[in-house]
Design a protein around this nucleic acid. Structure first.
Lengths: 215, 215
DNA sequence: GCCTGTCTGTGACTTTGTCACAAAGAGGGT
DNA sequence: ACCCTCTTTGTGACAAAGTCACAGACAGGC
């Protein structure tokens, strides 16, 4: 087995939606190119046009917007077993990418050319369902993000972020990275974290934040 | 011709994507219920589940999020010839609505039951394209809204809003309504408008804003 | 005229974002 | 060990935006 192939079994394990569709899986894989990527690879930029749709096998991708002021905000992240739905969106809506994407860890994906993807969509309802469900979920997530950014306080959002992102109560990240996920500035994150430290809720060190109270 | 029917010709004029698909149009209309609505009708609330997809014939719909503090923000508006894509999103993703929708003028729509819509999707690529394109466009719009809210200044956003919404340089609206579209509070809108008036860029009266410089 | 409900204006204060700059680690080379 | 450099963090001063409280202005009915 060559390193550049993926078996239908491996694939259907990652993408359970396709588990009963051997024909679909086979067709999909026949057209696909498998590629691996290191962390920090920019997959596309806002304004690019696109030529295929990516199915993520391993690793993670961050989709984000970048403001003129230099600040950034993460729209959502893509994990194994998901497709980079913005590809589909671009292909089917015939538009440029509305956001940027960068890999946040190394991993692998398979790339299906736009034309083949379109053909599969027309002939397999499973594929329609899969893509629609993912697109709908993203739309809902981004709508919820609008709500967060427009109405919620930064200290609450930061606290939730820390709890969500810290595996065992410790998060390894710079304040700048946190700020770029939340859509605020590094200074604000530093200030709020310092306040939380003074309140005894966490302890700070270079590149690491340890939650103290088990909230 | 009864008031509760729509001819395929009328329909394809409003929805040009379906112009060469008489069979599709006929099937769609066969299952559809036509309904009219007054301004201010709440079509659904965040958390509702949904049973059909709406094709808008006339009038306009506002889709918005509502924060705990009482503030609101408009995500986008739906016009004639568009479908309320969140319906499709809910049907195909099997989820509750992620936002609220209210009519901002009287109008008419046709409602296609979820089951029939699904069937049409499976058998007509035109329908797939139509729904995907609209869903993609909305996703792009909402992403851009995140950018606006997270990074841009309110005075700029307000000025753009006024220019876009004022037909002939005059906009009839309360400050509260403007605030609810932009996702801010009434006081902020009042203050910014007063500043702009002092700068000679517009003149204010109860329920009306007149732009003075032809920007 | 007067009454009532809606709409607008504004001061005081808090939260968030910006700018400028200082200080504290981390890691390399010698 | 020491020095040098780059990254990361801390903080004061100010600007922009959101909150709260309340006053005044306007429209429409009586």
């Amino acid at each position: 087995m060559s390193a550049t192939t993926i078996t239908p079994d491996e694939f259907t394990q990652l993408f359970p939606r396709f588990r009963l569709q051997h024909e679909l899986t086979t067709q999909l894989l026949a057209q696909a190119r498998r590629q691996s990527f290191p962390a920090g690879t920019h997959l596309y930029w806002e304004g690019d046009s696109c030529s295929g749709i990516a199915f993520l096998l391993s690793g993670a991708i961050r989709v984000y917007k970048s403001g003129e002021t230099g600040r950034e905000i993460t729209l959502y992240e893509i994990g194994p077993g998901e497709t980079c739905i913005l590809n589909a969106s671009c292909i089917l809506g015939n538009k440029a990418y509305p956001a940027n994407a960068v890999t946040i860890s190394g991993g692998e994906l398979i790339m299906v050319p736009a034309h083949d993807f379109r053909r599969l969509l027309g002939s397999h309802e499973t594929m329609i369902d899969f893509v629609f469900a993912l697109l709908s979920e993203r739309l809902g997530e981004v709508m919820e993000l609008v709500n967060e950014v427009a109405f919620r306080r930064m200290d609450e959002r930061l606290m939730e972020y820390l709890i969500e992102k810290s595996g065992d109560g410790v998060l390894m990240a710079t304040h700048q990275k946190i700020a770029s996920d939340l859509g605020t500035s590094r200074e604000v994150v530093s200030r709020l974290l310092k306040d939380l430290e003074r309140q005894g809720k966490l302890s700070l060190a270079r590149n690491s934040i340890s939650l103290l109270e088990d909230l």
